[in-house]
Nucleic acid binder design. Structure first.
Length: 271
DNA sequence: TCTAGGTCCTGAGAGC
DNA sequence: TGCTCTCAGGACCTAG
């Protein structure tokens, strides 16, 4: 599933493929996916130039001059650049055509992805982006902030997955970050000590930075826009490794359920 | 206000 | 072989 590193990889690919193209039309084949009527998208974006594609958390922002098209890939969303003559396949749910007879097709087996529209001057002041916490590399994300947000009855993993705390962390990286920090995902967040918050923050930054550099992790069905696999999956130490030996102590990795999510941990290394 | 759980959705895999 | 059931999970909504 695309988390921050995978969405960042998609963003970079899309910038290479479609930046500078002019909007011609947009067709939504599965209406519940779009929070804006198709006619309004057409009217608002018509003849505007796609100047840039940026990212906030796991959301992609297509900058069409003074408008922002917000795309969330959720579980399985991916893009393919095709010609206008392409025949729609079963899982392609919307398509954005450009004036050069190319089109960006959105493919999503589970239909969880979303499409939204905001004005550039208010995009960060309105939901959903206004709810997001700092990016992992944001200087405002420091130990004091993290300790404040960890004053919760919830488990550490639930807090890490909360996008209003840190934007961009999903299930895979939450498991890897907690293993790196030696923290049990089931531990109540409020019981973390300052040194553990420091370690958690350092691991968050290190792991996400490395994952971005490697093009994300190709697990489940994720591939970037060009169909190229990421390489971070070879660095996963606990996620999807139930029953396999811990790379540190060789105890078997166990799979449990935390915050409603399948969670992998080493009982011996994580406390 | 905070938290947990249900919901959306489809394909893969297990079990019979 | 074919059917049914369960599981996977990000974000939003609702109930307690």
């Amino acid at each position: 599933m695309p988390e921050l590193p995978e969405v960042e990889t998609v963003r970079r690919s899309l910038n290479r493929l479609v930046r500078g193209k002019r909007f011609e039309s947009l067709c939504v084949f599965y209406p519940p996916m779009s929070r804006v009527p198709e006619a309004l998208l057409q009217k608002t974006l018509k003849h505007k130039t796609l100047e840039d594609i940026s990212r906030r958390g796991k959301t992609l922002l297509f900058a069409f001059e003074d408008e922002r098209l917000l795309v969330h890939l959720r579980m399985e969303g991916k893009f393919h650049l095709r010609t206008l003559a392409h025949e729609r396949t079963k899982h392609e749910h919307w398509m954005m055509a450009f004036t050069d007879d190319t089109a960006l097709w959105y493919h999503d087996v589970r239909k969880f992805g979303t499409l939204d529209l905001r004005r550039a001057d208010t995009v960060f002041e309105t939901q959903p982006l206004s709810r997001l916490g700092p990016e992992p590399d944001d200087p405002s994300l420091d130990v004091d902030y993290l300790r404040r947000r960890m004053r919760s009855e919830r488990t550490v993993k639930a807090v890490l997955l909360d996008q209003s705390v840190i934007a961009g962390i999903g299930n895979i990286y939450a498991d890897e970050i907690l293993f790196c920090a030696g923290i049990d995902p089931n531990r109540p967040a409020k019981r973390l000590k300052r040194t553990q918050c420091e370690k958690l923050l350092a691991c968050t930054r290190d792991i996400l930075k490395e994952a971005v550099a490697l093009g994300g992790a190709s697990v489940h069905t994720y591939r970037d826009t060009l169909g190229i696999d990421g390489r971070f999956q070879t660095r996963l130490k606990v996620h999807l490794r139930a029953g396999k030996p811990c790379p540190v102590c060789h105890e078997a990795i166990e799979k449990i359920r935390v915050a409603g999510r399948g969670t992998y941990r080493c009982r011996r290394c994580q406390h």
